[in-house]
Amino acid sequence: MQSPAKPAGGSYWFFRGMRGIVSLPAFILFCSFVGFTGFAVESGITRAEAVFMTGSVWALPAMVLLVTSALGSAALPAAFLTVTLSSIRLMPMVAALIPEIRTRKTRTIALLAVSHFIAVTSWVFTMERIAKVPPEHRVKFFAGFGMTLTSCNMMIVGFGYNLVGALPPLAAGTLFFLTPIYFITSIWASARDMSVYIAMIVGVVLAPVFHQVAPEFDILYTGIVGGTIAFGIERLIRVRQANASARTDEPGRVEP
């Protein structure tokens, strides 16, 4: 790889971040947003609303839930609660990324500002590549990638709005299918401990059950019940492992 002759400045690393939009994760996200645009068109969301939602919410599962809630004529507090609960996962993701990109001189206000651009794709992308960026330029690198990725997807939604209606049915259906497959594989691949795998499996199995029982609250119930079951299983396995390693007289260190 070519490296700059003199120590590169902040704008160089901002640009390096921007260049990250030419990558597989970014490409998959573009396709997913074409799929979302189709979903928005079919749901009767206007172009301006869809573009605004892309830039302001910037988390596909939350956006899909928001559209579903809005058109299911959910009251504002109910929609807020549903989206809030589905977005809790952003908190640990951000909490994990921040120590990677901050230095002691980084101001909290700058981190609060760039945190808006953290979502699954930018998180996976940054965690993979951040080690090669000098610590003092990491916030700029992330900002370059995150802001470019968000802007490009706002443009895709804006310009694609009229085009997706004209897509052949096979392509339209396939783009809808891309989003769930992208979510499940990218979240699974970026998981750091077993609780994520268990929660994913329990959630996928429970969702259709709760959909039959309580179609309006299926996602909420699946999250709380499924998540708690997954947490219980994870605790149980962890205790078993701790006991097993204690019995074999290993040092009492348990790796997750």
Partner: peptide, 24 residues
């Protein structure tokens, strides 16, 4: 917290596949 959040997203994934909107 992370387990609940992941199960919520899993529910979204399952619904998008089993009860999809639109052409799918």
């Amino acid at each position: 917290v992370r387990s609940v959040a992941t199960a919520l997203v899993a529910a979204v994934i399952a619904k998008l596949i089993i009860y999809p909107n639109g052409e799918l």
